[in-house]
Design a protein around this nucleic acid. Structure first.
Length: 452
RNA sequence: GCGGGUAUCGUUCAAUGGUAGGACAUUGGGUUGUGGUCCCAAGAACCUGGGUUCGAUUCCCAGUACUCGCCCCA
């Protein structure tokens, strides 16, 4: 009785002012985060399978690295002045006061691991692949999330351009095999630090003279990161740079030869590529080769380019992080974008293994027997479905039917006692009673007879 | 960071200034231990906070999310 009073008091008096503001419990993850539900896994599984197969085929071995690294691992390698570092990192301090960040990409962490574990003494090149989530605090839109998944490969310790070609070959192959036939590769060379420096001053000199015609952002870029002006989508900047000096015309001899050889390899591989002198890429650590994988989709009148992945050579990165000078090259693919593209195209999906047998039971005793029967069937490699939680035979058969199984095994009270099982052929509806001990062999025989 | 659009059962669509209806899906049933079709039933929703109003899911504003585009990128 007194309880009741309390309750009414609470409910009638409180609504005016909620004292302690309860934090609202939102039944959704933070912005840019999302679940990948079973229905979509048919694409993801296909991506995982094909990409890992390609990595294995080319001799790459898996590496897993932490999701969290010290912030300066990223800021030093990717570079201050890039959007990724300046605006998009999930950075925080730990209770111990360490400044850490969720990885916005893998390459920096892999270079760190390479140095830490002394991989420089391993046979070269050290070939690694990875996949997993990355985080960038960016504005979500189609195919872009704050938590996104990358697959990628890195080859460290080899400077031969044939590795650059292999990277492009692998990335291109994965995308193509996933059914995205419209994939194109754009390649460019931004040179080594030496030739880039002189190219850079040429470029600055050029843009300086046309500064008035550049957009606001590009005026800033002119000081911070002039190469990125080549990336700008603003009309006026596009016009201004049309006659800007191009990096490939100003490569040093070594870089020029490197690039020339890469192109020859690509021709040999018959991979369709486009030279794109404006391709720069956002990260600081790139040297020489840079490339991107794009799809071209018709967006009304003009074709829209959509980046599925990219990569390049980063000969300076390992040294930047304190290791010995190590040439390296890698690429990564945006798995989310691949999935989006596959969905659009109605690309081939991973086929989930389907059960061919259903096990139905009636009554407590039979249910117990079924548990053993299920295990026996599974162990002999027969995929079995069940609905042990359901009581009526009718509803169980309904489930069996929906699953499209070929055979249903029925164990009722009587069969459980007799050590028998009813074998029902779902297509014809015919059924027959057999010895419980012979179920596995009988089912195998019948499935074989039916075939696929 | 900037602009446009959207916001109703799990999904997809309706209607409505007086608290909402269908379809698909789900669960149960159409006698006792037998599926597909069919029939019946049930559960299940107005993003959040303000404002206008006697009254708002509906109108207005803000927030948030989603979405498209810009920027950037995978």
């Amino acid at each position: 009785m007194p309880k009741k009073k309390n309750i009414t008091k609470k409910t009638t008096k409180n609504p005016k002012k909620p004292q302690a503001v309860k934090e609202e419990l939102l039944l959704q993850p933070p912005r840019g985060m999302r679940d990948i539900l079973p229905a979509d896994q048919v694409y993801w599984q296909q991506i995982r399978r094909l990409s890992e197969k390609a990595a294995a085929d080319f001799g790459y071995r898996r590496i897993d690295i932490p999701l969290v690294e010290f912030t300066n691992i990223f800021s030093r390698s990717i570079g201050e002045g890039t959007d990724i570092i300046d605006k998009e990192m999930y950075s925080f301090s730990t209770k111990g006061g360490e400044k850490v960040s969720l990885r916005p990409e893998f390459t920096a962490g892999i270079a760190r691991s390479y140095i830490q574990h002394g991989m420089n003494v391993s046979p070269k090149p050290v070939k690694l692949y990875y996949s997993g989530p990355c985080y960038r605090y960016d504005r979500p839109q189609e195919g872009r999330f704050r938590e996104f998944f990358q697959f990628g490969c890195e080859a460290l310790g080899e400077q031969d351009p044939v590795l650059d070609a292999q990277m492009i070959q692998m990335g291109w192959r994965v995308i193509y095999q996933l059914g995205i036939r419209s994939v194109r590769v754009s390649v460019n060379s931004i040179g080594c630090p030496a030739c880039r420096k002189s190219y850079r001053s040429l470029l600055v000199h050029y843009f300086e003279s046309k500064k008035q015609k550049l957009c606001i952002d590009c005026k800033k870029r002119l000081e911070k990161n002039p190469l990125r002006i080549l990336d700008c989508k603003e009309d006026k900047c596009v016009q201004v740079r049309a006659s800007a000096p191009q990096s490939i015309d100003h490569l040093c001899e070594e870089c020029r030869v490197h690039f020339k050889e890469l192109l020859e390899y690509l021709e040999e591989l018959e991979i369709p590529f486009d030279l794109d002198s404006n391709l720069v890429r956002g990260l600081d650590y790139y040297t020489k080769t840079v490339f991107e994988f794009l799809t071209v989709s018709e967006g009304g009148g003009d074709a829209k380019k959509n980046a599925l992945g990219g990569g390049g050579r980063y000969d300076g990165l390992v040294k930047m992080l304190g290791g010995e000078s190590t040439p390296a090259v890698g690429f990564s693919l945006g798995m989310d974008r691949l999935a989006v593209e596959m969905k659009k195209l109605g690309a081939r999906q991973y086929k989930e293994p389907k059960p061919r047998v259903f096990l139905a039971q009636l009554g407590v005793f039979a249910k117990k027997k079924s548990l053993r029967m299920f295990e026996a069937l599974e162990r002999s490699g027969i995929r079995v479905a069940e609905s042990f939680g359901r009581g009526s035979l009718k509803s169980q058969l309904k489930v069996a039917d929906r699953l499209g199984v070929e055979i249903t095994l029925i164990i009722g009270q009587k069969e459980a006692l007799d050590e028998t099982v009813i074998v029902k052929d779902m297509a014809s509806g015919n059924q027959e009673i057999i010895d419980a001990g012979k179920v596995v062999d009988e089912v195998k025989r019948r499935l074989k007879k039916i075939g696929h």
